[in-house]
Design a protein around this nucleic acid. Structure first.
Lengths: 192, 192
DNA sequence: TTGCATTACGGACCGACGGTCCGTTAAGGG
DNA sequence: CCCTTAACGGACCGTCGGTCCGTAATGCAA
């Protein structure tokens, strides 16, 4: 027999995610949002929060999954420049652009996740890495597997949110970053 | 009137650093070394530890400073390939190689530092960035300031210890990483 | 040598945080 | 209407970085 949760105000998992989302968006420091604060904001007991998400990382993952769905959809859609027959270079550049835009839009949440470590093993990173690696392999110039693996990592490493923030703070315009990133991507596909 | 600390065994700041060093070298997880553990290992009260270094980050910085001195000396020496007249490309490649070797040798400590955040603002990062940027500017192909700034960051971002560990764990041989990094550096200096 | 001012020492203590546990409350079926 | 069942909330716990204070050792002066 399930609890029905019939009353209006009582909180659902989505309400908790929404509350957490709000708090992360407001907070400047990444680690400043505590589980107690989220529970309070969601008008929910701490136990309910942990029962729903298992741990802080679990909650972060749930938030992240919701955010990343759009990125993933557009990248896996068949609309240009992601359609199957598109030139690898265009796919790669568009994909990197999309990630850059996405990271900037979600910087607070991403910061909170990055300091819980182990991101390189996460399915999301592996997905991005695989996509980029495929673009490089498809272009197939001198591209052996090691070359593709290394440069996919290297391209992604330039997208760490701390680095992006730092460059923006140093006065590099976003458009310049985007342009230089694009140049770099094309250089990976057609070196020297 | 200073305390003389005449007895043999009583601990000095260097002893504390040595003890911390030992613990960090042994620990697999970066955050697993607690200040209490360091105090215990150094046969010192926790208060003495904090009085000497101010905070955990302070202690990490002190350890780091000791480690990085050698790297910095060799990079600022006038011995090849770092002598003033050397080709920028050789300087850059050697510098990146040195950093790679250094990071792998000191991985445990570096991991502990990386998760305390704000590394991009640290003097050590800024020094590395400046050195690399200078190499790029010296080569002066299309190299405007933004190009040099961006690519110096980008080259360094490929040297995050987590990324290096991940690539090694995926089976990329260190020599391959070194070779691909070199190719990338040369590509930055002479794009397309 | 003795007494005193000064200072460094150690570890008990504190507040914050992630995570757990259990008494309480509400749901739903007989 | 009552009794079984399960979700709920928040008191509680262990850990960790950091602080504070009683104590002991030091060096100087008489």
């Amino acid at each position: 027999m399930q609890c029905k949760n019939r009353g209006r105000p009582p909180a659902s998992p989505d309400d908790m995610l929404a509350a957490a989302d709000r708090l992360f968006a407001q907070s400047e420091l990444p680690g400043a949002v505590t589980m107690d604060a989220i529970a309070l904001a969601a008008s929910v007991g701490k136990g309910t929060l942990f029962r729903a998400f298992g741990s802080r990382d679990g909650l972060l993952d749930a938030l992240w999954a919701a955010r990343i769905a759009a990125l993933r959809e557009s990248a896996e859609s068949n609309t240009p420049p992601f359609e199957p027959g598109a030139a690898p270079a265009d796919r790669l550049v568009s994909f990197l652009d999309a990630i850059l835009t996405f990271k900037i839009a979600n910087r607070h949440l991403i910061r909170a996740r990055e300091l819980s470590g182990g991101l390189l093993q996460s399915p999301h990173y592996q997905w991005m890495h695989a996509e980029i690696k495929r673009c490089i392999t498809d272009a197939a110039n001198p591209a052996d597997a090691d070359y593709a693996t290394y440069n996919a990592h290297a391209l992604l490493s330039g997208l760490h949110i701390d680095l992006i923030d730092e460059m923006l703070m140093q006065g590099l315009p976003l458009e310049t970053i985007r342009k230089l990133q694009t140049a770099r991507a094309r250089n990976v596909l057609h070196p020297r």
